[in-house]
């Protein structure tokens, strides 16, 4: 008995393995926002429940991180020679970068490490990478509060301008989400990529100027400074430092960095979401 496709479609059947159109897919993802947020919150709990200090590690980790970098680059290597407010400079860099590297690392495995969930329930898979970035963002917020306290303790007067941190963090979230959507899909095609991500983040770490200031180190190469500002993580970190440390002329805010950050974030989100959606039917595959 030959199958008549048009007759089946008239009876409300559709081909298995098709994906919904982009906008209805994105609407489905938006309807899962409770799922995304709950998954992010529960993950933070679960990560820490076997530790004695529990959720305290959310704060302890970045502090220890900053201590190590402060010791190595501030005291042992003296890379701070001409950088004003070096400790603050380092703290802002380390805390913000942690969000980027954490999102990318966990996000690249967001589909592959959740195969049990993906294979037993049907829901838009994009919820998983979004949830990972959201989880890292929830972990970023208390470290930012910690940073503000540290700045005040070190004698910086709180200013209204510090509120600009909110739109900056929002753009940073969007930027990381776009990146993660791309690597999450690529990792499904080529598992090996998950092994490369740590090298990628380390490369970005050393070339972004976390523990040395590009503006000081390459002050005599203006063309290099011109190029590096188009590197999105550099732009975001520079903006963060200009917002919080504006009492020194080195950290004067360059408004074009906002445009660069905005363009990267929105651009990556659009590209990433389309790229991820186009392989939606692939993510549950066993082989």
């Amino acid at each position: 008995m030959p199958v008549d496709a048009s007759r089946l479609e008239a009876q409300g059947l559709s081909r298995v393995g098709g994906r919904p159109p982009y906008f209805s897919y994105m609407r489905e993802v938006f309807q899962r926002r409770d799922f995304i947020v709950s998954l992010a919150r529960y993950r933070i709990e679960a990560e820490n429940q076997r530790n004695r200090l529990g959720v305290g590690w959310v704060l302890l980790k970045p502090i220890l991180n900053a201590l190590v970098f402060g010791l190595v680059f501030g005291i042992l290597m003296k890379s701070h020679a001409d950088t004003p407010f070096f400790i603050e400079f380092l703290l802002i860099g380390v805390f913000l970068f942690e969000f980027f590297s954490g999102s990318l690392g966990a996000g690249s495995k967001s589909i592959t490490s959740n195969s049990a969930l993906v294979q037993s329930l049907s829901f838009p898979r994009m919820s998983l990478p979004i949830s990972v970035v959201t989880q890292k963002f929830f972990q970023l917020v208390p470290t930012m509060a910690l940073l503000i306290i540290a700045l005040v303790v070190m004698g910086h007067r709180p200013q209204l301008e510090w509120l600009l941190l909110i739109p900056l963090l929002a753009l940073f979230y969007v930027f990381c989400l776009g990146m993660v959507l791309i690597v999450a899909r690529l990792t499904v095609h080529v598992r090996d990529l998950a092994n490369l991500i740590p090298f990628l983040t380390r490369f970005v770490f050393y070339t972004t100027g976390i523990f040395f200031s590009f503006d000081v180190r390459f002050a005599d190469h203006p063309e290099l400074l011109e190029i590096v500002q188009y590197q999105p993580v550099y732009a975001i970190l520079s903006l963060g430092r200009s917002i919080l440390l504006n009492s020194d002329p080195l950290y004067t805010m360059d408004p074009t960095l906002w445009w660069i950050t905005g363009a990267w974030s929105i651009g990556l989100l659009v590209i990433g979401s389309v790229f991820f959606w186009r392989a939606e039917e692939r993510y549950g595959r066993v082989f």
Partner: peptide, 16 residues
Amino acid sequence: WASSRPSMLGVGAALI
């Protein structure tokens, strides 16, 4: 062809 997306229950790992 299917009239809606089927759900599958198999033995295997917990959800999370």
